[in-house]
Measured scan of single mutants.
Amino acid sequence: HTCEKCSTSIANQAVRIQEGRYRHPGCYTCADCGLNLKMRGHFWVGDELYCEKHAR
């Protein structure tokens, strides 16, 4: 898989955010504040991922 955020190959663990879309665990972050979304879930606003606070 290729990380959709940093565009590099994912060798080990990948986070599947949608069918066919993956990120490194470290790239699974809010587009606004950079908070890691692991164990928090994500919210779509347009084509970007946000934490609950910044999705509003």
Rank of each mutant, 00 (worst) to 15 (best):
N12G: 04
G20F: 13
C3T: 02
S7Y: 02
E19P: 07
D32W: 07
R16N: 14
L35T: 14
L37C: 05
G46C: 07
A11F: 00
V15K: 12
D47R: 12
A31M: 12
C6M: 02
N12V: 07
S7D: 02
Y50E: 01
R16L: 14
A11Q: 06
V15A: 02
F43A: 07
C30D: 00
G20T: 09
G34I: 05
E48H: 10
E48Q: 05
P25Q: 12
E52F: 10
Y22S: 05
S9T: 06
K53S: 14
L35Q: 12
N12L: 04
W44R: 11
Y28W: 13
H24W: 01
H54N: 03
R23Q: 03
N12Y: 02
Q18E: 11
T2W: 04
E19H: 05
H42N: 08
Y22W: 11
L37I: 05
N12M: 09
Y50H: 10
A14E: 14
C30M: 01
E4Q: 08
A14F: 14
L35W: 10
C6F: 02
V45Y: 13
E19R: 09
D47L: 11
C27M: 02
T2G: 00
C3Q: 01
N12D: 15
T2N: 14
L49K: 01
A14V: 07
G46R: 11
N12C: 09
A55E: 05
C3H: 04
G20L: 03
N36F: 07
D47W: 09
C30T: 02
G20R: 08
G20H: 09
D47N: 09
I10M: 04
C6K: 06
C51G: 01
I10G: 05
F43K: 04
Y28K: 04
E19F: 01
G20W: 03
N36H: 06
W44Y: 14
H54E: 03
Y22Q: 11
V15T: 11
K38A: 14
M39C: 08
L37V: 09
N36M: 10
A11C: 03
Q18L: 10
D47K: 12
C51Q: 01
A31T: 09
G46A: 07
C33G: 01
K53P: 10
C30R: 00
C51L: 00
Y50T: 06
K53A: 07
H1G: 06
H42T: 12
C51A: 02
F43M: 07
T8S: 14
V45N: 08
R21N: 06
L35K: 10
G41C: 04
K53D: 13
Y50N: 06
K53N: 10
